[in-house]
Simulated assay, not measured.
Amino acid sequence: MRDNNDMPGHLIRRLQQIAVAVFHSEAEAAGYDLTPVQYAALAAISTSPGIDQVTLAGLIAYDRTTITGVVDRLAQKGLIERQASSRDRRARELTMTPEGKKTLEGITPAVTAAQQLMVRGLTDDETEELMRLLRKAIAAGNELSRAPLRQV
């Protein structure tokens, strides 16, 4: 039987646990109550104002059911607004509120610090190599996911 430390799935899960813990710690220390997926959604809405929920889900690789809860929480926090789409009556367009813009700008240094903490045991070259390998593995397995990443 293989040791867990020889299994990529186990190591990826552990790194994800560390990444989430570090993100929460840095965000909380900076005075923000935002999860990693809420941050990802807010950042995507910032760069694509008027995006609909289905497209947002594809951009950040989350399933449609989960993204509904994420959008609901961001709206409850007053960070985004949902409006009926002028192109599709069934779709809701998402835009950031002034509070959402302020939050995104304010939390960005904490997110940057969290990213650095996640790879603190690696040199710059090792970090670049890790990122290259992660991107390669993700690209090869993207379609196996319940929520594949979709480029717009």
Results as ranks from 00 to 15, higher is better:
M1N: 09
D3Q: 12
N4V: 08
N5I: 00
H10Q: 14
H10V: 09
I12V: 06
R14K: 15
R14I: 12
R14V: 10
Q17V: 06
V20H: 02
A21D: 14
H24L: 05
A29N: 06
G31N: 04
Y32W: 04
Y32G: 01
D33K: 13
D33R: 12
L34M: 04
T35H: 13
T35P: 04
V37E: 15
A41S: 02
V54A: 10
L59P: 01
Y62L: 11
D63W: 11
T66F: 10
G69T: 07
V70W: 02
A75G: 06
A75R: 00
Q76Y: 00
K77V: 05
S85F: 02
R89L: 15
A91I: 04
A91Q: 14
R92P: 01
T95R: 12
E99Q: 14
K102L: 07
T103L: 06
L104T: 00
I107A: 04
T108C: 11
A114S: 02
Q115W: 10
Q116G: 10
R120H: 15
G121T: 04
D124R: 14
E128G: 05
R132L: 13
R135Y: 06
K136N: 14
A137H: 08
I138Y: 14
A139S: 07
A139L: 05
A140Y: 08
L144H: 06
L144F: 13
